[in-house]
């Protein structure tokens, strides 16, 4: 195989007429060869490849990858940070909503309390007024009753006086002697029940 390759090296040449000057090997004009198998260029390729790979490795490993990795992890961090912040804001919003609800409920309760208190106060005043009015009414009623009773009593005695006087006069006019006690007795008997 190696001898074959070396033979290829010595025979190599493409159709060199089109690149007349630049072919550094194989001056033969008809023979073709695979440039890949031209062993005389291997040292050159391998040397420069190693140089380039070392430079490239240094660039990639020391500069590029740490930077991209840092950017990616930064972004990951920023994203999780943002998500956490969003979660926090959501929590805060929920808290605010709860606080608002609570404030609303409190206000409602307060209003209810105030309404109830006012109502109670009004009720009390009303009760007092009603009681006062009731008392006045009953006092007036009692007074009226008393006066009625007085009137009725005075009417009773007046009627009795009148009846006695009339009876005594009648008895006198009929020529009898007036027994005042008997007349009173008779009048009282007659009057019993009539004036009740």
């Amino acid at each position: 195989m190696i001898s074959l390759l070396q033979e290829a090296v010595t025979v190599t040449a493409d159709h060199t007429e089109s690149l007349a000057s630049s072919v550094a090997y194989g001056e033969t004009e008809t023979a073709t060869g695979l440039p890949q198998l031209d062993l005389s260029t291997f040292g050159n390729q391998i040397f420069w490849l190693v140089v380039a790979m070392v430079v490239l490795y240094w660039v990639v490993a020391k500069i590029a990858l740490p930077r991209i990795g840092a950017v990616l992890s930064d972004r990951q961090g920023a994203m999780t940070g943002d998500l956490m912040a969003a979660e926090e804001f959501k929590l805060k919003a929920k808290e605010a909503e709860a606080a608002y609800d609570k404030a609303l409920a409190d206000a409602r309760a307060e209003a209810g309390k105030i309404v109830a208190a006012n109502r109670a106060e009004i009720q009390k005043e009303l009760d007092a007024a009603i009681a006062h009015a009731d008392a006045e009414i009953s006092a007036r009623t009692a007074e009226s009753e008393k006066r009625i009773r007085e009137i009725r009593g005075s009417a009773d005695t007046d009627a009795r006086e009148v009846a006695r006087d009339v009876t005594a006069e009648l008895v006198r006019s009929f020529g009898g002697t007036v027994d005042q006690a008997a007349v009173d007795q008779a009048v009282d008997n007659r009057m019993k029940g009539a004036l009740q």
Binding site: L4, E7, A8, T32, G33, L34, L37
Partner: peptide, 8 residues
């Protein structure tokens, strides 16, 4: 094929 073509 390439070897046969060019290197033989």
């Amino acid at each position: 094929a390439l070897l046969l073509m060019f290197a033989v």
